[in-house]
Design a binder for these strands. Sequence first.
DNA 1: TTGTAAGCGTTATCAG
DNA 2: CTGATAACGCTTACAA
Lengths: 343, 343
Amino acid sequence: MKSATIRDVARAANVSVATVSRALNRGETVSMPTRVRVLDAAGALDYVPHSGARSLSTSRTDTIGVLLPDLHGEFFSELIRGIDQATRAHKLHLLLSHSHGDPQEAMAVLKAMRSRVDAMLVMSPYADGALLSGALNGAVPLVLMGGGGDAGAHPSFAIDNRAGAVAITSHLLDAGYRRIGFIAGPADNIEAGQRLSGYRAALAARSIAFEQIVQGDFGERSGFAGAGLLLAAGPPDAIFAANDMMAIGALEALRGAGLNVPGDVALAGFDDIPVARFLDPPLTTAGVPIAEIGRRAVECCIAMVADATGGPGHIFTPELVVRASSGPGKQDRPNGRLIREEV
Amino acid sequence: MKSATIRDVARAANVSVATVSRALNRGETVSMPTRVRVLDAAGALDYVPHSGARSLSTSRTDTIGVLLPDLHGEFFSELIRGIDQATRAHKLHLLLSHSHGDPQEAMAVLKAMRSRVDAMLVMSPYADGALLSGALNGAVPLVLMGGGGDAGAHPSFAIDNRAGAVAITSHLLDAGYRRIGFIAGPADNIEAGQRLSGYRAALAARSIAFEQIVQGDFGERSGFAGAGLLLAAGPPDAIFAANDMMAIGALEALRGAGLNVPGDVALAGFDDIPVARFLDPPLTTAGVPIAEIGRRAVECCIAMVADATGGPGHIFTPELVVRASSGPGKQDRPNGRLIREEV
DNA sequence: TTGTAAGCGTTATCAG
DNA sequence: CTGATAACGCTTACAA
């Protein structure tokens, strides 16, 4: 069925298209009777304005574009949920895309989205802020999420990864663990770098010499492999994975090696994705208000569309979430037996 | 920076706008030199076509609209990933929204999206197919995912929930469990209903009288509560949750009650979300090719845009995925001791 | 309060 | 091979 246009409605209601437009939008000056006629006609014809035509005329799209580095896993699921909440609350549409971390692809996507959105919300964990700005070229406001981009030029909603990693590492030290291995995130990922730096800083602050770092990529699989490497190198008594997904993989590896968590090796992650509390044992992690970051960033987008400044963004400080995976270590156990031996 | 238009490019390249358009699109008939001039000018001006204007002219948006009942959890994360893969492969955009299962809201969203997309991909687990078709009113092709909608009128990509539930239940029976409790999904959810029906059918087929059903809503929390109810009613020796999220909640409840899985109570879910294999114990479940459903559905959308029919859709048969959570039950254990007593 | 008409940026038709 | 020009559907001065 061919869609009705504003002309059809005008004809049906016996008014001009201008009157229809006025009656349907901010009907400043339309008499009650005509307004009713128009609304009835529009309803009867099942009229829906052509958004392209409208955006051509108003140069607004009522759409926020979102570019994420990935869509995999609960972290992004949460983030999208927060973003969706906010866009929906403001009756905006959500155009979603991702770039497997490839800057070239990210630029291409940004250009492709540019004419379809009022603002862009980008999570780019790489040092490509200039590229992104270039692709957008000031055509639409840009709001950043995560540590990447050049936060000076654009509002940025990020987390204090370093502080979070310091908190986790210090917590493990406080709990008595001394040999703490670290499964790092992707090498060129800014947030991953900050977490690594926090791990190191916390060790240095206590003059702990033991430091063991393996490379991961934020995926479960790499957590599994990373834990394997750490174990092979002489088991640490705790493993700190730079995100929860890798911690899940590490947990699997520890289990596979017949090691008890936290009895033999304690474990901690980062992000506090929803499933973290349902692991066995529940995972100690750095809690990040994932959905809220999305919400706030969208609201900043909206503000920028309105007044072009939109405010400064915000850095969220992760909250230390202690669960059983970093419970009492070996040295605290009664009579020193390994828990797994008791099974 | 004000965006350049096709006229700016035309001026810069010393040609007409028609030539620019031809050179940039399927440039059937543009001489090499002019084409180069146009491309250069477009590049220099950082020209990006105004998608609204284009869609006004071509009556295509190069966008697929996606409406999901929810965005929460790994199931939808996976689904979106599959959808995104396909849209990206075809250089289409992805307009995402959701409707907390509220049919009225779903209709409103559909109407709002209608003029912005070439096709709609809807997962509606409720019996509101007619409403959806009504909201769209034939303006754009509609492809369904999941059991809802009226699959007769539109291509539908769904899973055989009943067969999956029969497979899980039969597997539990084969493993020696006789008192199998069921945590159901939302009452009005069609897929949930099919799973319930499969559970019952499998019990009936073996003439098992024991049947215990509690109401859930597909969320972790309801799985936790549901398991609590089942335990209070006299512990079953196995629990089958209608999806993995509820199984995760149930696992938590069992753990909290000091029960061993599968030693005291076996557990099974449905969907095989990625995290299922990382639970402890890994979860027995009905494997559904979540991402593939998304991909295939998008491809069907594309086909429908092209030739208006797009083919019949597809019913996927879930695969029984047996993991440790439904391992040997009590009766198979050496000397009949509860495993948890050994701990 | 209502109507007329000028854009908005593209594509496509039709001449040249 | 290229250039005018008419849509496409809507909003918004400007007139009436």
